[in-house]
Design a protein around this nucleic acid. Sequence first.
DNA 1: GCCGTTTTCGGCCCGACTGTTTTCAGTCG
Length: 584
Amino acid sequence: MASVDRKAVAAVLEDIAAMLELKGSNAFKVKAYENGARAILAFPGDLHAAVASGELKKVPGIGPSLFSNIESLVTTGSLPYHEELRAQFPPGLRECLRIPGVGARKVKQLHDALGIDSIEALERICLEGKLAGVKGFGARSAEKILRGIAMLRATAGLHYYTRARRRADEVLDLLQRTGLAARLQVAGSLRRRKEIVRDLDFVAASGRPEELGRAFRDLPWVDEVTADGPTKTSVRFADGMAADLRVVSDEDFPAALQYFTGSQEHNTQLRARAKKMRMKLNEYGLFRADSPEERVPAASEADLYRALGLDYIEPELREGLGEIEAAEHGELPRLVSEEDLEGVIHVHTTESDGRDSLEVMVEAAREVGYSYAAITDHSKTAGYAGGLNEERVLAQREAIRALRQRTPGFRIFHGTEADILADGSIDYGDEFLANFDLVVASVHSRFGLPRAEQTARLVKAIRNPRVAVLGHPTGRLLLSREGLDADVEAVIDAAAESGCALEINGSPERLDLDWRHCRRAVEKGVLFSIDPDAHATREYSYVSLGVGIARKGWVTPQSTLNAKTADELEAWLIKRRGGSLPDL
DNA sequence: GCCGTTTTCGGCCCGACTGTTTTCAGTCG
């Protein structure tokens, strides 16, 4: 049987949606396929099993038709309906949909009028000045499309959260200094703490919108102004990042902030709810449906949610994945926050590939406010990272013993980030692992193993009682490397069963485990270790990125390993390994 | 194509901006 994972299924559904759009099908049918793709990506269980049992039919957004399509895909590896559609459209035509500012209607029109069937053909027509003849396209259309093509090629416009956050803070600072904004906040996916951000959204309350808009256009990084209306200004910075500013009245601000925080899907559901309750929600406020002039008073986002019969929903949760239902029933979790963290796990020093010494890393952890740190340098297999052989481990143990004497009131756990070998065993061997207080086990090699082998490898490591934490579980690198191919659901089940914690690695390029997987794991009782993977003192700040991902994944303090106190962690470690920690 | 405490048929979120138009369709979020 062909192995079709959820990403592949979602990609097919998205492809179908794109082609239905090109066909000019009912927009809601298109939407249904897009929603289906999202639902599959977010579906936490085993897709094959859910198809076999029919459980998938119960997932919102998967109706009879989508179910049978998905069933065909996972059981036979292909879908005739998809093939039929593909045969009708050249692949280049679907590529054209990715150009910003170019949608299905325009692509279809250009295909019909000029036979354009690829981005290259479209570019040529624009350059040759042959576009303006087509009805609906004028002199400026070609220019705009060419810019869109350039943009698409440049970066695909995606940015790490950290980079976007830094730029957003700079923008907020400069706009704040103008004194033109009574209220000013960043919204959008950045506020929702998505790991990857496409553009920045700012919302302001101001009595002088034109001046504020001008200040926005005049920001030092602005390369191009892409939209410029009385309430909305869009720019692109020289580094390719796009940013929007919306200016509203003070009274409208809460609704505007809510609206521009999104996500699209969350807002769609929220508006449908408002409508059902005979109200109307838009970016200016909440109104009575039968008397549109009558505003439902709301001084804050919390007021808006309350008026809709909902508990306040934290921005991180607003992904349209059941948070509204949970808020309705008072079942939202108390999300973990940085204040809940008692200690830091997964810390490197100069002994392997860190840039600061043991003493400096420990002191910095104490200054951050932690009451313990688990030092986890690389293991012997990681020669490229200066990994420690057994002899050096024992020497480090002595160094830590000595440092403990000089660091009263602060607990130092001696750990390792040990390599999981291809067969799932840990490179030091189980016996030697007993020398550590805490073992983080990670995959650093053989990413290409077949799925079944890769899964078995991770499960074996998780079931090893010496292993406390599975480090960066999928090994992905955002924007550059797919994670290893493993059955995450099986990994989660193994963690739940054995009690091994899964890491939420806060390194900006990792943010692994992905938040989409966390929620199901939390429900199953899995513990998470929210770690910086720090290679220098300043990288302790990565913990806050990990916390953002944990919050998106509905992780609570109770589900967080390093929200335990030092004593609790020690007790947990002893229980996990079924024996005492090394006598130090 | 999906969905149901108005409904198994008839809805499906809503508005700003652009570029082309003289009243609007397309795109985006």
